[in-house]
């Protein structure tokens, strides 16, 4: 039996963000949100452990009042119990780690699973932060997880080498996108998930330190966007351009 905590987050659907041609700023209002990419891999990894060893998966999401859709998705994928903590502050990573650590301390667990880097901020801070605050070992950027008795063993992928490493439970495991293909839950489970209660809480601590976003602009894209749907015309035009440009 394993008790797994999985940390997940919600993010804007990045592909749907357009920029305002006047100000050059990304338009974030009205963009639909979704479960963050690596959160899906994390849920899949957590649920797979439960299926293999038995036990329970509890998800914690630090977000806001609008985060319940992502938690319902987590339920549909096989998460048993979910906490949403509201009051997320963009770019204050220390606050995020402290709020999550406070909640984790209340919940008995063998393994904490999270994404090694989120698809939106890309910071990759959280796993190391939690290791420092909770005093639990980190098995980072894993592409496989095994549990043997009170030992957690993973394959860790680094830029220039891969390692097999292990540590005693309770341990933190961050996962890489390559660890699995997240399941698509069947309709029945999606419907059942909608009826399942979600615990909602507020942080027990206040943010410290100042982090102020003073400007946000979209990188300029002035691509020509000349698209050929007629392949023969396309290859002849593009062929000429490539011949010229790569001479």
């Amino acid at each position: 039996m394993v008790n797994v905590i999985v940390l997940i987050k919600q993010m804007p659907d990045l592909e749907q963000i357009r920029s305002d041609p006047g100000t050059g700023k990304p338009i974030k209002n009205g963009v639909p949100t979704k479960l963050e990419t690596l959160s899906e891999n994390s849920i899949e990894a957590a649920v797979t452990l439960k299926e293999k060893y038995g036990g329970k998966v509890t998800a914690i999401l630090f977000g806001n009042e609008q985060s319940s859709a992502s938690m319902k998705r987590a339920y549909a994928m096989g998460v048993d119990d979910g906490y949403i903590i509201t009051g997320y502050k963009e770019s204050n990573y220390l606050f995020t780690a402290r709020v999550l650590a406070e909640k984790i301390k209340e919940l008995p667990h063998d393994v904490i699973i999270l994404g090694n880097q989120s698809a939106d901020t890309f910071s990759g801070f959280l796993s190391g932060q939690l290791s420092a605050i909770l005093g639990e070992p980190l098995l980072g950027n894993s592409v496989s997880i095994e549990i043997e008795g009170d030992i957690v063993k993973v394959k860790r992928n680094l830029e220039n080498k891969s390692l097999v490493i292990s540590a005693k439970k309770p341990a933190i495991v961050s996962v890489s996108q390559e660890i699995n293909e997240p399941r698509l839950p069947p309709v029945m489970q999606i419907m059942a998930a909608g009826r399942k209660p979600i615990h909602t809480e507020v942080p027990k601590i206040q943010p410290s330190g100042s982090v102020q976003i003073v400007s946000e602009i979209s990188p300029k894209s002035d691509r020509k966007k000349i698209i050929f749907e007629d392949v023969d015309k396309g290859v002849s035009e593009v062929g000429k351009i490539l011949k010229e440009a790569t001479r």
Partner: peptide
């Protein structure tokens, strides 16, 4: 990134990524 996260939390200091 892991080490940076560890140090920022151990010292209680703000971190900025990338």
């Amino acid at each position: 990134r892991e080490v940076a996260g560890y140090v920022s939390a151990a010292l209680g200091q703000i971190s900025v990524p990338e």
